[in-house]
Amino acid sequence: MAFASLRRLAAAALMAAAFSASAGAADAPQPDRTVDMAKLLQPGDLKELTIGDPGGVAVVEYASLTCPHCAVFSKETLPQLKKDYIDTGKVRYVFREFSRNTLDVAAFVLARCLGDDKAFAADELLFAQQDKWAFVDKPLEPLIAAMRSTGMTKDQATQCLNNQKLADGVVAVAKRANDEVKLTGTPTFVIDGKVYGGELTFDQMKAILDPLVKK
Results as ranks from 00 to 15, higher is better:
residue 184 T to Q: 15
residue 69 H to G: 12
residue 114 L to P: 03
residue 113 C to P: 00
residue 73 F to Q: 12
residue 128 A to H: 06
residue 197 G to E: 12
residue 176 R to H: 10
residue 163 N to A: 07
residue 76 E to C: 13
residue 10 A to M: 11
residue 111 A to H: 12
residue 207 A to G: 03
residue 56 G to N: 08
residue 44 G to I: 14
residue 149 S to Y: 05
residue 71 A to L: 01
residue 201 T to D: 03
residue 214 K to P: 00
residue 157 A to N: 06
residue 106 A to S: 15
residue 82 K to S: 03
residue 158 T to Q: 14
residue 160 C to N: 12
residue 14 L to F: 06
residue 155 D to Y: 04
residue 109 V to L: 10
residue 21 A to K: 06
residue 80 Q to H: 07
residue 9 L to E: 13
residue 70 C to T: 04
residue 91 V to G: 09
residue 66 T to N: 04
residue 110 L to T: 14
residue 181 V to T: 07
residue 209 L to T: 06
residue 133 W to F: 03
residue 131 D to I: 11
residue 23 A to M: 08
residue 8 R to W: 11
residue 55 G to S: 14
residue 172 A to E: 00
residue 140 L to Y: 09
residue 158 T to S: 12
residue 106 A to H: 12
residue 194 K to T: 02
residue 15 M to N: 00
residue 37 M to N: 05
residue 64 S to M: 07
residue 12 A to Y: 11
residue 211 P to I: 11
residue 110 L to P: 02
residue 84 D to F: 00
residue 54 P to E: 10
residue 80 Q to F: 09
residue 110 L to R: 00
residue 22 S to Q: 14
residue 172 A to L: 06
residue 137 D to P: 03
residue 188 T to N: 04
residue 191 I to D: 13
residue 73 F to R: 03
residue 124 E to M: 12
residue 101 N to A: 08
residue 91 V to E: 05
residue 19 F to H: 05
residue 164 Q to T: 09
residue 190 V to G: 04
residue 190 V to T: 13
residue 10 A to R: 15
residue 25 A to N: 07
residue 208 I to S: 05
residue 187 P to E: 04
residue 197 G to C: 08
residue 101 N to Q: 09
residue 72 V to Q: 04
residue 139 P to W: 10
residue 188 T to I: 10
residue 10 A to V: 14
residue 34 T to Y: 13
residue 153 T to V: 06
residue 45 D to W: 14
residue 169 G to K: 02
residue 115 G to H: 10
residue 53 D to T: 12
residue 163 N to E: 12
residue 173 V to R: 02
residue 55 G to R: 07
residue 174 A to G: 14
residue 194 K to Y: 11
residue 54 P to W: 15
residue 152 M to Y: 04
residue 29 P to W: 08
residue 101 N to T: 04
residue 95 F to D: 02
residue 197 G to A: 09
residue 63 A to L: 08
residue 5 S to G: 11
residue 96 R to T: 13
residue 195 V to K: 08
residue 208 I to A: 09
residue 153 T to Y: 12
residue 42 Q to R: 15
residue 185 G to F: 05
residue 120 F to H: 06
residue 109 V to P: 02
residue 157 A to Q: 08
residue 191 I to G: 02
residue 21 A to D: 05
residue 159 Q to F: 13
residue 10 A to K: 06
residue 158 T to K: 13
residue 194 K to V: 06
residue 141 E to C: 12
residue 94 V to E: 10
residue 22 S to R: 12
residue 44 G to D: 02
residue 22 S to M: 05
residue 23 A to D: 05
residue 64 S to I: 09
residue 193 G to T: 07
residue 86 I to V: 15
